[in-house]
Lab assay of single mutants.
Amino acid sequence: TGEEYIAVGDFTAQQVGDLTFKKGEILLVIEKKPDGWWIAKDAKGNEGLVPRTYLEPYS
């Protein structure tokens, strides 16, 4: 389980392990790392690192 967040901007993977997403996408945050990069999963089940500055809590 995780917390749902909504993307407030588009993000394109910079390196292997990053997750590309579009503004408005709902992501499930699995782990919040202290460096500001969180592990998240998208609706298709893809998992990767995302920058927390692009996310806001979804309710």
Rank of each mutant, 00 (worst) to 15 (best):
N46A: 11
A40F: 02
K23D: 04
I26Q: 03
W37D: 05
E25D: 15
I30H: 04
L49A: 09
E47Y: 13
V16C: 08
P57K: 11
E4I: 13
K22W: 08
E31F: 11
F21A: 03
L55I: 11
K22M: 09
D35Q: 04
G24C: 06
I6Y: 06
P51C: 12
Q15E: 10
W38I: 02
E56I: 13
Y5S: 01
G17E: 05
D42M: 02
I39D: 03
A13P: 07
E25T: 08
T12G: 06
S59C: 14
G48W: 02
A7M: 03
K22V: 10
Y54R: 08
F11N: 03
G17R: 06
F21T: 02
A13Q: 06
T1E: 14
T53D: 15
P34D: 14
L49N: 11
F11H: 07
L28D: 04
V29F: 02
D18E: 15
A43D: 12
I6Q: 06
K41Q: 11
Y58C: 09
Q15T: 13
K44D: 13
T12W: 13
E56N: 06
K44Q: 14
P57N: 06
V8C: 08
A7H: 00
N46S: 08
E31R: 06
I30R: 05
I26D: 01
I26K: 08
V16D: 14
E56D: 07
T20S: 15
V16E: 12
V8R: 13
V50P: 00
K32Y: 07
T12P: 06
V29Q: 01
P34T: 15
Y58H: 12
G2Q: 10
P34F: 11
K41R: 15
L28P: 00
V50A: 10
E3S: 11
T20Y: 04
T20P: 13
Y58P: 05
G48L: 02
I39N: 06
A13G: 15
I30T: 08
W38F: 06
Q15R: 14
Q14T: 13
D10H: 06
G45F: 04
E25K: 02
L27P: 00
D42G: 03
G2P: 15
G2A: 12
E56Q: 09
D18C: 09
A43W: 12
N46V: 09
I39L: 13
P57A: 10
D42T: 06
L49I: 11
A13E: 05
L49W: 11
E31P: 01
L55A: 01
G24A: 04
F21N: 00
D35T: 08
K41L: 14
P57Q: 08
L28C: 08
K44Y: 13
P51D: 13
G2S: 12
E31H: 10
E25A: 12
G24I: 01
T1G: 13
T12N: 12
P57T: 07
L27F: 06
D35I: 03
E47G: 06
K22L: 08
I39P: 03
V50Y: 01
A40H: 00
E4N: 15
N46P: 01
P51I: 05
T1R: 05
L28V: 12
D42K: 04
Q15Y: 10
G36L: 06
K33F: 11
Y58A: 11
E47L: 15
L19K: 02
K44E: 11
V29R: 01
W38G: 01
Y5I: 01
A7P: 01
Y5W: 13
K41S: 08
P34H: 13
E31A: 11
E3A: 09
L28S: 07
N46H: 09
E31W: 08
E56T: 10
D18V: 15
K23N: 06
P34A: 15
K41Y: 08
D10A: 07
I39M: 14
D35E: 07
P34L: 12
I26F: 05
G17A: 06
T1A: 14
G17C: 06
L55S: 00
K23E: 08
E4M: 13
P51Q: 09
P57S: 07
A7Q: 01
P57D: 06
D18G: 14
W37S: 07
Q15L: 11
F21I: 13
T1V: 11
D42V: 02
V16R: 13
T1Q: 14
